[in-house]
Design a protein around this nucleic acid. Structure first.
Lengths: 143, 143
DNA sequence: ATTTAAATGCAATTATGTTGCTTTAGTTGT
DNA sequence: ACAACTAAAGCAACATAATTGCATTTAAAT
């Protein structure tokens, strides 16, 4: 998922600031989602905490990032697929949250269709699998 | 899901205190999951905040309650099905989080089986649907 | 009833998220 | 390139959520 921060900002008619570029750069570094605290640690020297919150919120609203909550209620961010718009997020893939390293992966697995009971109208469905990721299962073998 | 708090405590060899009983009573009142802040509001006069946290943690560890995170990272609690044990939670049903009233329902819909990519070993899978619940869709019609 | 161990409550601390306002920095038009 | 305008960043203060250590209380065991 190689993106050009400057282009992304233009596409969504967002003002080009170095803070916004930095946030996108940082998140785009890895296909694995990055957590709010990690971002804060990495960017805390360059970007104010409040600004970071605001940038992340805007990006989520615009459909540039999607936010995945982990089991601790911590927000994690990953770049959205190009199909996402401000009105509608299409991040209907399965997430994998490693219980060992706590990394969150966006898997190439679609969330299965399922029928809701009478009266319940689902707009989006969110699926997260918890377990051991590829990196950690390798490490376990080595020990 | 009618439970007897006193029995539940015995089964898990937990000391019987009035705070623990009250928490279980309160959560068992409704099939809908109750949020931490709601619980705190309801029980705040009788039970210290810290005690509430500790009781909820113990109940989760023991497999008496299961915790569902909503989109805001707020913890919600519901009684576990009898199949749950301390070692293994079996709450593999779909949750429904109403975007209008923010209630969380435990649906009688099983989480579909799905295949993980090479190297990823899922222990549990968590699915939450977001949308409008039965109660809210009725209200919308009325207006 | 006495003892013992665990649970509760309280105070203090830390982490997390939000709001209002001032300052700074992009963008637009000349 | 410069001035003027507007949006974003930074800062301080505040609000909320969660955790820790310790003194006190209470349930259970003898």
């Amino acid at each position: 998922m190689k993106i050009n921060p400057v282009d992304v900002l233009k596409e969504h008619s967002l003002k080009h600031t170095k803070q916004r570029v930095r946030v996108l750069e940082e998140i785009a570094l890895d296909t694995v989602a990055i957590s709010q605290p990690e971002l804060e640690k990495k960017l805390g020297k360059e970007i104010d905490r409040v600004t970071l919150y605001r940038i992340l919120n805007i990006y989520e609203d615009k459909g540039i990032l999607h936010r995945i909550m982990d089991m601790n209620g911590t927000a994690n961010y990953a770049i959205c697929s190009t199909a996402c718009t401000a009105d509608h997020h299409h991040d209907e893939h399965v997430h994998f949250n490693c219980t060992n390293c706590s990394r969150i992966y966006c898997l190439d697995v679609k969330v299965p269709k399922m029928t809701m009971p009478e009266g319940f109208k689902a707009a989006t469905i969110n699926t997260t699998a918890y377990g051991i990721c590829e990196k950690c299962s390798l490490q376990v073998k080595e020990n």
